[in-house]
């Protein structure tokens, strides 16, 4: 009940603050830009150079999903950093919600939005054709990825500048979504341990139980480790 009340208050707060509202709809802007690129740039490149982008469609779609959920994670991470700097986080932690409640509240809000934008991406882009259960799993994993990014920034950074450094470094994680293209065995092996690689693999091989299971496990392990680290650090 407390969570629902806080969640409702969060929505009110966000709607009152135009900056936050704009930031949370920013993925829509990103989706629009990618759609424009899909409609105009892909045929333009094909016409001018004869280069067919479609074999790389799974990687492009994976990139779109990762950018959306990553952006929401970064926004949430900075929101929590600002709340920590303003001692708002400490105040919320001594309310009945508690420390874990605060974390769940902040991360679940961004994760729900991530699922929403994932669904929008499936509806808008015709780059890949996936079965329903694959779409469901990708939505779920996008939500987890958002929480992972948010937690990495919040629990890893001591201040805003370190948060920015983390955000910059986390962009490099997206590289792991494309490692199959580079055909470097050491890089592919390294990618196995990072969520972006498995998002691309799931889009490439939606029928594979092995890929889907490993994607799920890797995401959950990352989230679990980060929550554990956060709990230990705060205590």
């Amino acid at each position: 009940m407390i969570q629902i009340t806080l969640f409702r208050n969060d929505i009110k707060q966000i709607l009152r603050d135009p900056v936050m509202a704009m930031l949370l709809v920013a993925p829509l802007l990103l989706i629009s830009v990618f759609k424009i690129l899909e409609v105009f740039l892909i045929p333009f490149v094909a016409l001018k150079t004869g280069f067919d982008v479609m074999p790389y469609a799974p990687c492009i779609f994976s990139f779109i999903l990762l950018m959306n959920s990553g952006m929401l994670g970064i926004v949430t991470g900075f929101m929590m950093l600002d709340e920590r700097d303003g001692n708002i986080a400490q105040l919320l932690e001594i309310t009945p919600m508690g420390r874990s409640g605060y974390l769940i509240n902040r991360l679940s809000f961004a994760s729900i939005l991530s699922v929403l934008y994932c669904v929008v991406s499936f509806a808008v882009f015709g780059l890949v054709n996936l079965p329903f259960y694959s779409k469901m799993l990708l939505c779920f994993l996008s939500a987890i990825y958002t929480a992972i990014i948010g937690l990495l920034i919040f629990s890893g950074a001591d201040d805003k500048v370190k948060g920015l450094t983390y955000a910059k470094g986390l962009n490099a994680l997206v590289l792991f979504a494309f490692t199959d293209l580079f055909a470097l065995s050491w890089l592919t092996f390294l990618s196995w341990f990072f969520p972006p690689y498995w998002i691309t693999m799931m889009i490439k091989s939606p029928q594979s139980f092995f890929v889907n299971s490993l994607a799920f496990i890797i995401h959950v392990v990352w989230l679990g480790v980060l929550i554990f680290r956060y709990g230990r650090r705060e205590s």
Binding site: T165, K168, G169, A172, F182
Partner: peptide, 25 residues
């Protein structure tokens, strides 16, 4: 010193490696 402490140089080593991998292909 502040930038080194906050990992600016380290993060740019990582980003440079990332770009080099992509550019090399």
């Amino acid at each position: 010193r502040f930038q080194i402490k906050h990992g600016f140089y380290l993060v740019y080593v990582i980003i440079t490696i990332m770009y080099l991998i992509i550019l090399s292909f």
